[in-house]
């Protein structure tokens, strides 16, 4: 019976005149890739929001607690800033000599973020050398962020720059240091603080995290400043979520980029102008 039924169905199908199949495969590929990009963008945004939320929680905890830790007695836990070979070897951009960063692993443990990751994180204090930005400041633009980021990156070929269209300023770029392109992203935000907002301050607290099961945030460096400014640098170990790639920066390098004093929700007008000139027409990320 099965064979007869099948033969009958096939005979009837043979009498049909189906339209050409068309490019259903190409259309499916295009639709699928678009959906995948959207999902990834949503995932990335969710990941960034989660990390920033953790930082916010840590920041609030840090500001609400006395500035000393149990086990150290009553002595104030002043930041101990010591030079780090890894950080001082960082090639600074021209004009950045006065802001040379120094890194001291584990110098000022602040906040609970290190306990919240699958791989151990650490917190650093990085002294910028300036307590307050000089001159006038303008609202930060993604173009200025990209310009500053390319100034801070080590030697290599940059490509595929893109910026966020809404929300916190967010940029991404690929850096090829000779081993293939690696994806980097930077987000800048202003966290709430208790009471009156203090001045920017001269020392950033940088937390380095490794997000498990998210190759786009293989290494995350988040710099927090006393005035609530938060800068997050994501170093990916993949380009698209599936294809593995090299990490464009080490953890210390990412920390140094995040701790640069020129980041902020307001930035130097010269950076704004240079950013508009260089990156005024880069693609906008969709989410």
């Amino acid at each position: 019976m099965t064979e007869d039924l099948r033969a009958l169905l096939r005979a009837e199908l043979n009498n049909e005149r189906p339209p050409p199949l068309g490019d259903v495969v190409g259309a499916a590929l295009r639709d699928g890739r678009r959906v995948r990009r959207r999902r990834r963008a949503g995932f990335m945004a969710g990941g960034s929001a989660t990390v920033l939320a953790l930082v916010l929680a840590g920041g609030v905890a840090a500001y609400s607690e006395p500035r000393h830790s149990a086990g150290v007695g009553s002595a104030p836990a002043a930041p101990v800033v010591a030079p780090s070979p890894a950080a001082t070897a960082w090639p600074n951009a021209p004009g950045q000599a006065a802001q040379k960063a120094t890194v001291s692993p584990g110098s000022v443990p602040v906040g609970p973020t290190a306990l919240l990751t699958g791989r151990p994180g650490r917190t650093l204090a990085i002294h910028s050398g300036v307590d307050q930005a000089a001159g006038t400041r303008e609202k930060a633009t993604t173009g200025a962020m990209l310009h500053l980021l390319t100034q801070l990156l080590p030697a290599g070929r940059t490509s595929n720059a893109a910026v966020s269209g809404a929300g916190d300023p967010h940029v991404q770029i690929r850096l090829d240091r000779g081993t293939g392109p690696g994806l980097l992203r930077v987000t800048v935000g202003l966290l709430p603080v208790e009471g009156a907002r203090p001045p920017r301050g001269g020392t950033a607290t940088v937390t380095i995290l490794h997000v498990a099961d998210n190759c786009l945030q293989d290494t995350v460096a988040i710099a927090r400043w006393p005035d609530g400014t938060a800068v997050q640098v994501d170093v990916a170990s993949c380009l698209t979520g599936s294809s593995r790639g090299p990490r464009a920066l080490t953890a210390d390098e990412a920390a140094t980029v995040a701790a640069d004093a020129r980041w902020g929700v307001t930035m130097d007008p010269d950076l704004i102008k240079a950013g508009a000139r260089e990156f005024g027409r880069v693609p906008v990320l969709v989410s």
Binding site: P19, L21, V24, A28, D31, G32
Partner: peptide
Amino acid sequence: WHLAQDLTQTALTKLF
């Protein structure tokens, strides 16, 4: 046939 084509494309997208 036209709906069949749409269904096929949607199914292939989900498969992708």
